[in-house]
Nucleic acid binder design. Structure first.
Lengths: 255, 255
DNA sequence: GCGTAGACTATTGTCTACAGCAGACAGCAA
DNA sequence: TTGCTGTCTGCTGTAGACAATAGTCTACGC
């Protein structure tokens, strides 16, 4: 794995392009933790004991604690004073929040970024898609998920809106966390089919018709994930249940 | 000042309601730093030297560093490995990003939250407005800004969407940072006029007509702040300049 | 006079150690 | 046997110290 799904964006235009990007233990620890969480090594609600992790990662507590603070603000970790940290437990309401907000981010990004002005941004999408294809070829599901993540972020990146992209990246991580709860749901769909969906999306984007992209996005969603979700999580608020009903109705209508 | 604009939300429903909420030095340091930054004690681009701050705040470096990590993810502070931290410098493009994304957040929140279902959420808005009125009465501008901040956050809180509210809170802090760059612009408008604007907004919200709230919001903006902004910041991208032109055209048309 | 190499200072990155609090368990009493 | 209380262990919160690196200033050579 050459680049983690969880690395901080290194392409901040404010920083002069340096030949070497010296990593700090904090960033490395944060990246590793993100991988562990979205990869399913740590499940929702699991306690995160600092001493144990320092042994596993081979670092001392201060950098680990700073990394935990970062993940806390990203929403992957929940810290309670004097009681420690746990992987954020997700309720159905949380999943409702994650999906709806992600939808808004994507919609706004497409409105800003399509038709595409900057060719280099499109290249970034194509590269991610290319890596997805390679991973699908090799039947390497972790890598596929990683590059799928990068692909979606790069789509939002078309907007040229860094804050939007960063917010989206953070939320997308939470989405991967929620999906780590039930991997089985995704197995129904083959990597190849998934790849096709993404390829079609990029084609529509290159077409430049904003509305058509929005329609394609609305049917793009990972709705298979939502099947039977109520039985696997708690926190069933009214709005969340209502949203779930709507999503399923749309899903049937479209596909 | 009983409650900082920068305090973390204590009303997380996942945490059992405890009699005492023991503060940690990290949170206290983060709150203090936020106040210093949005209050204008630290200006954009100012270096943040850890040792100096530990002396000023009377704490040691580890909690301060953790606080800095939090502010970094909030976008108020920019850290470069082995070179230290600075208060995030803002370009015109940054201001474009902050304003546009904030607008999207507010729009989405209103769509979800108006008409209001939960009366307790409305009470929160009214309380913030009440405190604004008190501050205006006393001609206490810092407090007024603080409660205005809380008012806007509580408006977004009507949506019942915690992640949206948190993202909005973070962005609103950056907006206050950008406004700290030129306090003069706001002096033209009296606190009373400002209060009236907010009061009208809340009335429209209580009316329950979503579209009408959106219209009111679109003319609510702090556009006086944008006057002559180009000369005070750098980073003039094309999209940012185009946006600025649009904003001014809308501003003239509406008011 | 200008450029460069060296040392020095200031600042960040990291680690170890100690203090304080929370939860668990055992012992005692009713 | 059940409930309470005291102790005890493990964890987090914080502090201070050490190591490493970047920036700067000075002195030397060309």
């Amino acid at each position: 794995m050459t680049r983690s799904v969880a690395d901080s964006p290194r392409d901040d235009p404010r920083r002069a392009p340096s030949i070497v990007a010296p990593p700090s233990l904090v960033e490395l620890a944060a990246a590793t933790l993100r991988r562990m969480i979205v990869g399913g090594d740590l499940l929702c609600g699991d306690r995160i004991v600092e001493n144990r992790l320092t042994r596993e990662l081979g670092i001392s507590r201060p950098p680990l604690r700073e990394a935990l603070r970062m993940l806390e603000r990203e929403g992957l970790v929940h810290q309670v004073p004097r009681k420690g940290a746990i992987v954020t437990p997700l309720t159905l309401h949380d999943i409702y929040e994650i999906f709806t907000l992600r939808g808004e981010y994507e919609r706004f990004a497409v409105q800003l970024g399509v038709p595409v002005r900057d060719a280099s941004r499109l290249r970034r999408c194509r590269e991610a898609l290319g890596r997805m294809a390679e991973a699908a070829e090799a039947d390497d599901e972790p890598s596929f998920a990683e590059y799928s993540f990068e692909f979606h972020v790069s789509i939002v990146g078309l907007s040229g809106h860094r804050r939007l992209e960063e917010a989206y990246r953070s939320l997308q991580l939470q989405m991967m966390l929620s999906m780590a709860m039930n991997r089985r749901a995704r197995e129904r769909e083959t990597l190849t089919e998934d790849l096709q969906r993404h390829r079609r999306l990029l084609e529509v984007i290159e077409g430049g018709d904003t509305d058509m992209v929005l329609r394609e996005l609305s049917r793009h969603g990972d709705r298979t994930f939502l099947d039977g979700i109520e039985s696997r999580v708690q926190g069933h608020t009214d709005v969340a249940l209502e949203w779930l009903r709507q999503e399923r109705a749309n899903s049937q209508q479209l596909g």
